[in-house]
């Protein structure tokens, strides 16, 4: 279970990235944020954003047409 969960279902680009970014700003290093999105663009946008920001995608899966990303905040 992630430390913080963000529901971006129903929201379109760029909201999934903005939502996880805002949640990540509140998280501390090493904490995980889980994002649930229905925007198919998130499949490429979230990994690109996480890689650039130095965060780690711990888990990623699709369930019932929804995309889940569990991202760990970079340690510093």
């Amino acid at each position: 279970m992630a430390d913080i969960t963000v529901d971006a279902r129903g929201l379109q680009c760029p909201m999934p990235v903005l939502k996880i970014s805002q949640a990540m700003n509140k998280a501390t290093a090493g904490q995980t944020v889980e994002l649930v999105a229905s925007d198919r663009g998130a499949l490429s946008d979230i990994p690109a954003w996480a890689a650039d920001m130095g965060h780690t995608i711990k888990e990623q899966f699709e369930s019932d047409g929804e995309y889940h990303f569990v991202v760990e905040k970079r340690s510093g």
Binding site: C13, P14, L18, M53
Partner: peptide, 11 residues
Amino acid sequence: LILATTGAAYG
């Protein structure tokens, strides 16, 4: 505004 906010999300 989409690019400005996404840029901010990228730090």
